[in-house]
Design a protein around this nucleic acid. Sequence first.
DNA 1: TTAAATTCGATAGTATTACTATTATATTTG
DNA 2: CAAATATAATAGTAATACTATCGAATTTAA
Lengths: 224, 224
Amino acid sequence: MLLKINIPISEKLFLIDPTSSRLGKSILLSAIELIDEIGFEKFTFKKLGVIIDSPEASIYRYFKSKNQLLTYLISWYWGWMEYRLLFETANIESAEYRLQRAIALITTAGDEKIEMDGADISKLHTIVISESAKSFLTKDVDKANKEGAFYNYKQFVAMVASIIKEINPRYKYPNMLLSTIIEGAHLQVFFAEHLPMLTNKQASADYITEFYKDLAFKSIKNTI
Amino acid sequence: MLLKINIPISEKLFLIDPTSSRLGKSILLSAIELIDEIGFEKFTFKKLGVIIDSPEASIYRYFKSKNQLLTYLISWYWGWMEYRLLFETANIESAEYRLQRAIALITTAGDEKIEMDGADISKLHTIVISESAKSFLTKDVDKANKEGAFYNYKQFVAMVASIIKEINPRYKYPNMLLSTIIEGAHLQVFFAEHLPMLTNKQASADYITEFYKDLAFKSIKNTI
DNA sequence: TTAAATTCGATAGTATTACTATTATATTTG
DNA sequence: CAAATATAATAGTAATACTATCGAATTTAA
């Protein structure tokens, strides 16, 4: 996960680089498992310490708070998504088709059973769906932003936005459309499971993908 | 606020009805002020107690947790929005025009300086933008849902969805479109202030309204 | 109208959480 | 191999979220 492809993470998102030691790596891997299992609210360094058989103070040497650890994991996720996007859109001429691939990637990233160095990507995806809003909807958002917490997310949005600009250079809202699609797609997955009246679940597995593809292309094609 | 128009709140969202006593009402009013000021993470019953000059245990007699209090406030907000929607769409023949009004209501609800019995609605709107995702993105969402925590929100979505069904009875995604618009519009306000690279802020004040109106009508008109 | 029942708010707690200061133990380096 | 450095463990603390209990005030019912 953290070695084979090198995903850049801001140095301000950790105290000691967790990829640089055995303990650091087991913190990351077990944190994904535990947050996925019990949710970020109930997640504590003490509980994580029991699982990896280290005292909580050792974890504090790597991350100064559980919020910083969550931010690290989400930043890693978007770095990984950027990497996936490059692969998914490589060697494809048509900007339209590249955008379709990008939206499909956003809406189905959790479906695949991918493991990188023991980290379960689909569990990380679940964490991103349920917890990522909490990482930016805080009073500390400006400070976190300065520390590069959302760099990889913004980078991903910028990359897909540039595809939209290729399709329609006059379209004024590429970033707005994308953040709407990304956050919307994540919420629909959650709603389908827990609050079905807030979505319209369909028989076909890819209805979320189809909905947001349709939304994107209709919005882009005819300029407001 | 809590008397003049009677907004129905599930009985499971409080221990003692806060509208039934002086203390209860001051809990609600001061909670809006304090959560808006310091954010929900740093909000505690102890701090609220200092402001209203009552011990925290007295607040616990009304709400069993600070989460329950937040859920109450958000539920009240959506009850109020339902009331506003009825007013905004009353006596208007055209379903298209009613939908336009509904979207404008969603995207501009925080702009007006309305006070109801001392409660600042625009501060409540800010709270809904920053904190409402936290009220449902938890492991307890199913329990909260059973207790009617999201009843008013779902009701609001259902009401606007029925307008969409009037415009195009064959449209398959009215609820999905609406939750996308509502949560999206809230996020864009937040992004414009804190993470501008995730949106496309424009000179005109109503660009968010225009964007989502355009998105809605394009999506509804041509069925997928 | 007065005793019983109930509501209400205050006091004084507890377990847990998030985090830190300090010390002990490896590991690396010159 | 000794000094410097990195790493981890111990033992804390302040604050948080919440509870059990008690006395006073209010309401209800005979």
